[in-house]
Structures are given as structure tokens and as C-alpha cells.
């Protein structure tokens, strides 16, 4: 890498957050370099294309803490590059900010689905670029603290409770290799930057695992995260081929955003997901059957929401699903309790 003019890196003294910017336009790279030069705690390396970026990544002794990827690049575009970076174990959780022009908006959905966590729009607002980089930095730091107590299996990484080796029930779990599943902060970033036109025909809802506290109590850490990953897979399979993104928000609840004017038949969807889960024949590690069902909350259209309250819609949908999950269990409890009383009487 040394002496190769294609890859530029301005070294700064001391320890820095390392950013890799990839864009085929040298002017954009120069602008980003000038912007980052004003931020003493950051160091920027640049690459003029996807293949060069992968070469830089492979040869870098110190890992990068954040990626800035242009979407439209010849040969291999930024969305493909994003997906490839996500296949590298070391970078499964690293912030990836897509650099987009107005004409790239149509690629945003696929960028998030490929693992992007945020995006910046050209022409740049310099303050906005710096804010986004700092947000990515904070995220990297929180991931690093998470990694101190991180259990990594072949499919997932999750926060482990230091005392009993189990992820906290309310904590999000990072799940990989499930179509349409992104991290919660990526889903929020995606929603907050949707244009009014995109909001038309979009809606949110959430799916919650019933009796999650009881299941969490019974499961080991590994069983719990495997169960969440399996449910994610079942939801994703049942939502295809619709355009959707979803995130696991903790507490057994998945938040979903759906596009294209499609309003799902929620009852039918829940039935399909439950059937899919049943077919998976989930079991505890001792062989006992792991029986679970999901419930779905209200479907909320986004077009009526003011931009600032779109994330509130996601929170409302999340709570609605959790309420519905609890209500179903309560109705079942009441049914059995009433039945028992009648029998006694």
C-alpha cells in the first residue's frame, strides 16, 4: 500500500477514529478530506473505487471505524461494496454511511438492506457531514463497549449479562444474514430521511413474541439469541416479496417498515409466521420443544405523520404489538381461569 497514489491517507499524530471514504469522484474525496481535516480526532483514508477499497481494507493493519461509500460508482457500486464489507467479520457492526445524490434516492432502500447504517446527501452541508461522522463515532464506541461482553456465535452477536451469561431481555440483538433485517439505529435513520413522496404508501407495524419474559427466563443466552434469529427469519420469509425493512428492537419485538402501498393482512401474516415457526420445530438444547407464537400490533400509515413524528409512529407500533401480545395471553389466562371456576362451581 505504501507509495500507492490511489489510496490517500493523511496521518495525524496520536490515536484517531479511522474513516475510509470511497468515491470515484476525486473532487468529492478532496472535499471530504478537507472536512475531516477540521476534525482533529478523525483520520481519513480515501479510495477511488470499490475494488481499491477492498484492497485497502484487506491490507490495513489497523481496522477502520467507519465507512463513507458513494452509491453510484462504475464497475461495482456502493451498495454492492457495502454488502461485501458486511461479509467481513470484523466489519459486521461498523457504521457504513452512504453518500448519495438526489438521483440516488431510489437506491437507498437497497443500501439499508445491504447493511448501511446512515446516509449523507450531496451536495454536502458541512455541519451535517461532521454531525453524521460524530454520530458514527459514538456508535463505534458503544459497539466497542458492547464487544467487551460480547458473545459471538456463527450467526449473531449479542450483549451478555455479566452475571448469568444471558442477553438482557430489553437489549437489541444484532442478527446477521436475514433479508431485510437491519439494526434499530439504521431503521430510525432510514425513516427520518424518507421524503414525503416515499412516505406515501409506507407504513409501520411491529411483531412481538408472546410470553417473551417466560421464554427469556427459560432460555439460556444461546437459546434466546437463536430463538430471536429464527423468528426474524420466519418474519422475513413471510414478508417477502414485499418491500420491507425491519429491526429487532429488544423485548421480543420486531419493528417493520413496509412500502409500495401494500397494507398487509395482519391476521393472515401472523398466522403465516406462526405456521412457519411451528414448521421450524424449535427446541431447547435439552430437546424439549420450544413453543412460541407471535402477535402483531396496529398498522400505522406514515403519510399522515409530520416528518418529526415518524419515529414516534415506530414507537407506537412497537408498543401496540407488545400490548397485543400481552392482551392475547391475558385473554387466554382469563379463559382458562373462568373455565376452571365453572368446573368447580
Amino acid at each position: 500500500m505504501k507509495g500507492d497514489d490511489r489510496f490517500k491517507c493523511k496521518k495525524k499524530a496520536g490515536s484517531h477514529m479511522r474513516i475510509l471514504a470511497v468515491d470515484d469522484d476525486p473532487i468529492i474525496l478532496e472535499i471530504l478530506d478537507a472536512i475531516v481535516a477540521q476534525m482533529p480526532e478523525f483520520e481519513l483514508t480515501s479510495a477511488p473505487g470499490s475494488d481499491e477499497a477492498l484492497e485497502v481494507i484487506a491490507n490495513s493493519e489497523t481496522p477502520f471505524d467507519c465507512f463513507l461509500l458513494d452509491i453510484q460508482m462504475p464497475v461495482k457500486d456502493g451498495v454492492q461494496l457495502c454488502a461485501e464489507i458486511r461479509t467481513i467479520d470484523q466489519y459486521r457492526l461498523t457504521p457504513i454511511v452512504m453518500i448519495t445524490a438526489m438521483s440516488d434516492k431510489r437506491y437507498i432502500d437497497s443500501a439499508f438492506a445491504a447493511g448501511a447504517t446512515d446516509y449523507l446527501t450531496k451536495p454536502f452541508d458541512i455541519g451535517e457531514v461532521q454531525t453524521r461522522i460524530r454520530i458514527a463515532h459514538q456508535r463505534t464506541q458503544s459497539v466497542m463497549s458492547l464487544e467487551e461482553s460480547l458473545y459471538v456465535s456463527s450467526r449473531t452477536a449479542y450483549k451478555v449479562n455479566a452475571t448469568d451469561g444471558k442477553v438482557n431481555i430489553l437489549d437489541p440483538i444484532s442478527i446477521f444474514d436475514v433479508d431485510g433485517l437491519v439494526e434499530p439505529n439504521a431503521l430510525t435513520n432510514y425513516l427520518t430521511q424518507l421524503s414525503r413522496g416515499n412516505l406515501f404508501g409506507s407504513g409501520v407495524f411491529a411483531i412481538s413474541i408472546r410470553r417473551i419474559e417466560e421464554l427469556h427466563e427459560r432460555c439460556s443466552g444461546f437459546e434466546f439469541e437463536s430463538m430471536i434469529a429464527d423468528v426474524a427469519e420466519a418474519i422475513s420469509d413471510c414478508l417477502k416479496p414485499e418491500q420491507f425493512l425491519m429491526a429487532y428492537g429488544g423485548n421480543g419485538t420486531f419493528d417493520c417498515v413496509i412500502h409500495g402501498g401494500y397494507k398487509p393482512d395482519l391476521r393472515g401474516l401472523v398466522n403465516r409466521i406462526n405456521l412457519q415457526i411451528q414448521r421450524m420445530d424449535l427446541r431447547f438444547s435439552n430437546g424439549d420443544p420450544l413453543e412460541l407464537r407471535v402477535a402483531c400490533g396496529a398498522f400505522l400509515r406514515l403519510v399522515w405523520r409530520a416528518t418529526g413524528s415518524i419515529c414516534d409512529a415506530l414507537a407506537d407500533a412497537h408498543q401496540s404489538a407488545e400490548r397485543e401480545a400481552m392482551d392475547i395471553e391475558k385473554r387466554l389466562d382469563d379463559f382458562w381461569f373462568t373455565g376452571h371456576q365453572d368446573e368447580v362451581g
Binding site: 469522484d25 473532487i27 468529492i28 472535499i31 453510484q72 462504475p74 445524490a101 438526489m102 438521483s103 450531496k122 451536495p123 454536502f124 458541512i126
Partner: peptide, 28 residues
């Protein structure tokens, strides 16, 4: 389209706002 895309991306940031807007329009 590639030429206009490139101009639209950087012109506005460099202070050539009207040029960037025209490039963006032609690209679209």
C-alpha cells in the same frame, strides 16, 4: 448522465449552487 451526476454532487458544496441545481435537473 455520469458527468452531470458528478457536477451535481460537488458543485453545490463548492458554492456553485445554481450550477449544481441545473446539473441535477439535466441528470434527472
Amino acid at each position: 448522465q455520469r458527468a452531470l451526476h458528478s457536477i451535481a454532487g460537488s458543485a453545490g458544496t463548492l458554492g456553485f449552487t445554481a450550477l449544481g441545481a441545473r446539473a441535477q435537473n439535466a441528470e434527472a
